[in-house]
Design a protein around this nucleic acid. Structure first.
Lengths: 346, 346
DNA sequence: TTTTTTTACGAAAACGAAGTAGTTGTTTTT
DNA sequence: AAAAACAACTACTTCGTTTTCGTAAAAAAA
């Protein structure tokens, strides 16, 4: 059994290809009798229209791309789920691309997408991306791009973020209120808008509470797990270690936990930890991790929705639009025993 | 700036479309001088060949589909990464489809794929799938399917699994050796090959150690978190609760942890827990979770590799081939304090 | 009855790229 | 010098579908 096309159906019925095509699209030009026969035969022969042939005519691939820094991160997974749910609802297909936080990969992916393989792109910037020509070029050939979380201010389009400054501020203030006076900030990448916002919130909170700012307390981490481990270990091993750690991403919090276990530091007594995190197991960790939870699913969903709002137009231009959702600070025991949880909610 | 095609390039240079096409494909028919001019101009104009036009001729989409039950599961995420890495290397694109463990969705996805949108499929069955016509039909129209983890024995093709029977056996025996005499098995779906294998290993271990089999100790869970919570709570609340729990998937272990916290049951003293899990946070849980870790990345990688081995042929037929990888049992504190870990390895 | 309209269909031209089969003009062979 | 070979191109067809433009026959209007 081979793939069946319009011609094969038309030959079986002794009608023209056009008739079959029109009948299947329920055109008014075709009589009811013929329509029924065509539909039945197509069904029986297992006809499926070729998406690629279709594209060639109407220039719509019914496909979007999700360009994501990494998959081993619950935030992105949930965001993907959100975007996928919208795409599925709109009968769109989803191509997934992982940049591994590598600018070069991101660039080559977007260059390829200039081919028109997709109708639009939902993306979150890689941590090593500093220039944006590859993105403006893509938009230049009429393929719209919307951002979520790791956005790019320089490009005019729709963007979905969370209130990172406020979250950074609140997280830091939470540590301060729980007794910390020397707080380290674990940064993922200074190129990232979100990281900078979070850092600004951190600095602002220190400022407000009259805590002197110590640049050496801003730890620049990366995607290299080993190097991160070393940096954090060095931070926590020193005899002048901080009494609080604010991690900008969940994986650095995990590494911090590991370091604490290895150094036999007790959380929250020896050190308190707070982190951006969408870990399902946050409440089950030892100790439960105080988390800033981003509405990841919703962010992916909104980003995709904003994209779809513009797809289908001839010349696509998405004006600046900033949707800012709220993250939630969930207090648990990693920042102090007074935060002890009564009941676990997953 | 609009999308540029061969014709636009050819007009700029006053040559024919064929010349441009051939020059770009480095045909011997085109002179070096012309080639250079064409390549430069194409580059300068930002020409990208349309993947869809190309498909129409050579019937190769350079795309594969990953059909997965769910994303909020570290096993599948890692498997996706593995498959994606192979696809990327082969210059293939990856469409992702999520069945949400729903047979109907799985069926409609595979029906759609009959259109020839992809050259091949890597999939893991949904937990509610009992019939396989949608899969044989897809293979029937020459689109190969390879399975990983949740495979389908009835279909002749390549499959990647882990040693589920042995793992189930070992997990159960580990509990027994740590003193358990009444072990519950948390099943995800009786339709799934892997679940059955794991259950068989569980039963066999009980048998070997002369522990009577109690059918009510096999708890049939589902994808409904609330219902799972209730079932597990009921199991652990009873005054004749088991002293060990073997969970077939990580999410049921997480739920079990939550139930234990809520009921104030101490792991591993009141109850011991072991689970299949690819949780990065397993060593950081309270207590650290004894896990059977599947080589998920490798499984996805192998499955994709086996698929690619057959793509490119005219009539694709993948003979039965069973690759069985080994899972690793990592002993931690959730099954007894003697398993206390010295050093954490992520 | 003749003319117009409607109904129901078919022929053919896109869409973008690639490959087959020419078609030149030039060079080599005999 | 005639014939064959070759280099460097162009014209045309194909892929599967949609759509525009026809057109024949039937129905309605004149």
């Amino acid at each position: 059994m081979t793939k069946v096309n319009l011609k094969m159906v038309s030959e079986k019925l002794n009608v023209s290809v056009s008739t079959v095509s029109k009948a299947l699209r329920n055109s008014y030009e075709i009589g009811n009798e013929t329509k029924r026969k065509v539909i039945d035969m197509a069904q029986q022969m297992g006809y499926r229209p070729s998406p690629y042939a279709g594209f060639l005519r109407n220039h719509r691939s019914k496909t979007i791309a999700l360009v994501i820094p990494e998959l081993t991160n619950n935030f992105f997974i949930q965001a993907i789920c959100g975007a996928e749910s919208v795409a599925h609802e709109k009968d769109y297909h989803v191509l997934i691309y992982i940049t591994h936080d590598d600018y070069t990969k991101e660039e080559s992916i977007l260059k390829d997408l200039q081919s028109g393989r997709v109708d639009g792109v939902v993306m979150s910037l890689s941590g090593t991306t500093k220039t944006y020509n590859h993105i403006t070029e893509l938009i230049g050939v009429n393929i719209p791009v919307v951002f979520f979380d790791r956005i790019c201010y320089e490009i005019e389009t729709a963007k979905v973020t969370t209130d990172d400054f406020a979250s950074g501020f609140n997280a830091t203030e939470h540590l301060i209120k729980n007794g910390c006076i020397d707080i380290a900030y674990l940064s993922l990448s200074e190129n990232l808008s979100i990281d900078n916002k979070r850092a600004q919130g951190y600095l602002e909170a220190l400022n407000k509470h009259g805590i002197p700012i110590n640049k050496t307390r801003i730890i620049k981490c990366s995607n290299d797990e080993k190097s991160n481990y070393k940096k954090i270990r060095q931070l926590l091993k020193s005899n002048r270690r901080p009494d609080g750690v604010f991690s900008s991403v969940e994986k650095l919090a995990i590494t911090s936990y590991v370091v604490c276990k290895d150094l036999n530091l007790k959380i929250p007594n020896d050190i308190k930890i707070i982190s951006f995190s969408n870990l399902r197991t946050a409440p089950l960790l030892d100790p439960p991790l105080t988390s800033i939870v981003q509405p990841a699913f919703e962010m992916g969903k909104q980003a995709a929705t904003m994209l779809f709002k513009h797809l289908g137009k001839k010349a696509i231009f998405i004006p600046n639009e900033n949707v800012v959702l709220k993250s939630e600070l969930i207090k648990r025991n990693s920042t102090g025993s007074n935060n002890k949880q009564k009941r676990i909610l997953l």
